[in-house]
């Protein structure tokens, strides 16, 4: 019991300090409740309207996760096509370089103008953001089988050419790409949540990002902070889940 508590302190003192600093700021600064809500007020706001928060969180996270999955699927699809036809790679790779140097979050206002105010925009931005890294990760993964593996497959008559291509892809190239895709998932998980929140923040229709703006203009700072806190907790949980999945599956995959 005591060691468990010590472990808890050892790992979470930073976050505890943050909450403490927040409460201390409320008490010392003597700001009005409208300016800085206290910890208790924020929790009360959360408990008072659980369904309201649940609805908007569900909206935000289904958009973020849906976009991430779609981006990964498309990235893998195009990487597979590029693996088959090098010419396609020659067209996509420059675009990848170009897009990688673009701060996509800064382009969200443009996407909103192009695609309209709605959940399709969130999906589009998350796909834009995730597609190119996933493509690069998947393609490196598809090309990663070692010479020894390739020789072994070749000795069984399975080469990446002609009729055997499909089998080679399914049995060797695709499994080699899985760990890379999991890494992509971990790296992109928090970014997707951020993008969904930013889009909602700018569009102002639904979701936690919208709640943050709306509550602020209604001077309900406790609600605004509660939405921000909820978004943070979900985003951290999403990231931790993705890294656990990566650690677990890559261990299983190697054996």
């Amino acid at each position: 019991m005591k060691t468990a508590l010590l472990q808890l302190i050892k790992h979470y003192w930073g976050i505890a300090l943050l909450v403490f600093a927040w409460q201390a700021m409320v008490m010392v600064s003597g700001f009005n409740e409208i300016v800085v809500p206290s910890t208790i007020m924020v929790i009360q706001a959360l408990v008072a309207e659980p369904l309201y928060f649940l609805h908007h969180s569900a909206y935000t996270f289904s958009a973020a996760i849906g976009g991430l999955m779609l981006g990964i699927a498309l990235g893998l699809l195009f990487a597979s096509l590029a693996w088959l036809t090098p010419v396609l790679d020659g067209v996509i790779t420059p675009a990848t370089l170009l897009v990688r140097s673009i701060p996509i979050v800064a382009f969200i206002p443009i996407v909103i103008r192009l695609a309209g105010y709605g959940s399709q925009t969130i999906l589009l931005v998350t796909v834009m953001l995730t597609f190119f890294p996933c493509y690069v990760f998947a393609l490196t993964g598809l090309r990663s089988p070692s010479k020894a593996h390739q020789d072994f497959f070749a000795s069984l008559g399975c080469r990446p050419s002609g009729l055997a291509t499909w089998r080679f892809y399914w049995r060797l190239a695709l499994p080699s790409a899985v760990p890379n895709l999991l890494t992509a998932l971990r790296l992109l998980a928090p970014t997707c949540v951020l993008v969904a929140l930013v889009a909602e923040f700018l569009m102002g229709a639904q979701g936690l990002g919208y709640v943050m703006v709306r509550a602020r203009s209604d001077l309900r700072m406790d609600v605004s902070w509660a939405a921000a806190m909820l978004a943070t907790v979900f985003s951290v949980a999403f990231f931790v889940a993705a890294s656990r999945l990566e650690a677990h599956l890559s261990k299983v995959w190697r054996h």
């Binding site: 302190i9 050892k10 790992h11 979470y12 003192w13 930073g14 976050i15 943050l18 700021m25 700001f31 300016v35 800085v36 998980a189 928090p190 949540v193 951020l194 929140l197 930013v198 923040f201 936690l208 990002g209 943050m212 602020r216 700072m221 605004s224 902070w225 939405a227 921000a228 806190m229 978004a231 943070t232 985003s235 951290v236 999403f238 990231f239 931790v240």
Partner: peptide, 29 residues
């Protein structure tokens, strides 16, 4: 080294925190 694990958790937390969620907090502080 005693600070290490706590700092790592803290950094992960900061990384996963959506910047936009800190907005309401930063404007005030």
């Amino acid at each position: 080294t005693g600070l290490g694990p706590g700092l790592a958790t803290f950094a992960t937390f900061v990384n996963a925190t959506p910047l936009i969620a800190l907005g309401p907090l930063l404007i005030v502080t």
